[in-house]
Design a protein around this nucleic acid. Structure first.
Lengths: 195, 195
DNA sequence: CGTTGTATTGACACTGGTCAAGCATGGTGG
DNA sequence: CCACCATGCTTGACCAGTGTCAATACAACG
């Protein structure tokens, strides 16, 4: 298990037919590989998308935390629930929304996650992903991702130039995407006190 | 928050356009509503599919468990990770597999989950879902679910009569579905001891 | 018996996939 | 410095899988 300190990573699974589903992009502060710790065989693959710095810890450490730091334990549980809710949002997007909505949601999420650690990011950010990666995250082909990006651009919702994306109309994007920022609206007053 | 003691439930979200994505079916022993506890507004809706019995507990109880029962706390974390992995499997299914594979995976999962609390279930079980519910869980329409069930039947992989389904060839189904039983293969030796 | 919800089936439409080609970019080795 | 190559982006033509709409059948239930 690791905490990501710097850089961008992703986790994905490969299916029998060779296709890939990207489960999650990982940003600084995220915990990685907890699920690998509870199974004999890791259920997902981790991969760095840029130069990264991680901070490793092992099962014994997690076990010690659970015994000695109840508040931290509770926060780990909360964190895993936030991640779970983000996954259910993506599940609903894959099951019930159009290709354009899924791409829009991905762009909005990338922007919000990047902004969490870099407040200078507002409308524009570097899109550190290939269109194939966007496709594997949204359940589309790279070709169709390209078409959707062009449409969003033609409709004036985004602008692109040289790997950078600018969200020109976040409201319209969020409307098209059914997007909810799951890192807001938390209620954590019930957490146990620090020991 | 609740523990489901008896019956079948589901959790789902409704999107703006009125479509529904079923996130999860809930079986006896499952914990429900943890994610609702950490947000101000519940991110998902819970709904009973049959007569059910639940055992409620509140945030203060969870907080007390985190403080006084490290082993139980760790098991709750493990449980939420199992659920997370099951969600990622479904995410990969929605993003990257065919309609037939998704329906097959749902049938296999239902059988395994039912069997967990009723060992008398082997090949046949009562399908307590409408085809519309199967569709909302797999990201398909009820009409297409019907077509897929018929195909699976014609290919001799399942049989149906009066709300009961029989899995005639679980191996072939699992192959068609890319299915992994996530309640097996756990490694829990690192858990803290009971206090 | 009507009524309501569910299952079934067919005809047709459309979203998104597939295949193929061309183009831009940047890195590499001669 | 330049030819070469790999990778990723863009676009068009065509096709397949899935959705939509509509009609019918069936069962449960008041």
């Amino acid at each position: 298990m690791f905490i990501l300190r710097k850089g961008l990573m992703m986790s994905y699974v490969l299916l029998d037919d060779g296709s890939r589903q990207i489960l999650r992009f990982l940003f600084p502060g995220d915990m990685l590989g907890i699920s690998s710790a509870i199974y004999h065989e890791a259920p997902e693959t981790l991969c760095a998308l840029s130069d990264t710095v991680v901070c490793p810890f092992d099962r014994a450490t997690l076990s010690a935390i659970m015994q000695e730091h109840p508040r931290l334990s509770a926060m780990i549980l909360v964190y895993s629930q936030i991640e779970r809710v983000a996954l259910t949002d993506r599940l609903a997007a894959l099951g019930r929304t159009s290709a354009k909505a899924r791409v829009a949601a991905l762009l909005l999420d990338l922007r919000n996650r990047l902004r969490a650690t870099d407040k200078s990011i507002d409308r524009a950010f570097p899109l550190g992903l290939t269109q194939e990666e966007i496709g594997d995250a949204t359940g589309l082909t790279a070709v169709h991702v390209n078409r959707m990006l062009r449409q969003l651009e033609e409709e004036g919702m985004i602008a692109r130039e040289g790997g950078r994306v600018t969200l020109l109309d976040r409201g319209a994007l969020a409307g098209a995407a059914n997007y909810v920022n799951r890192y807001e609206g938390l209620d954590l007053r019930w957490l146990p006190p620090a020991r």
